[in-house]
Design a protein around this nucleic acid. Sequence first.
DNA 1: ATTCTGACAGCAA
DNA 2: TTTGCTGCCAGAA
Length: 116
Amino acid sequence: MAKKQLKEENDFFSMVYEVTKLIPYGRVTSYGAIARYLGSGRSARMVGWALNACHSRPEFIPAHRVVNSRGLLSGKHHFGNSTTMEQLLKNEGVLVEDDQIVGFSEKFWDPLRELK
DNA sequence: ATTCTGACAGCAA
DNA sequence: TTTGCTGCCAGAA
């Protein structure tokens, strides 16, 4: 059997990718929220680390919908141009001002609450 | 095997 | 109030 494939499903990285891909259009979430959903709780850094490797993924990961707990576009610099992430968000109707999501509480999509 | 880093989050001063 | 330090876990050198 494809152990590797099964393993990927259990991998922390893949979990992050899957959850990230599940983020609805026009919604955003935080690294910590995903970390909690994965059960790691305080390992939000791993989420960021996983997203850092999202470039190695053949699929498109809407990492622009993942921001830090304050709704700050912490990883905008990793989208090639520093404006790409902000541009993508704006394209989805998410207002971004000063690298921060406007109405973050409203746009926030909690995997724990939505996926449960 | 050990050490360092990393797109965070929370708490302390 | 803002700034900074630690904790957390996994992957890369």
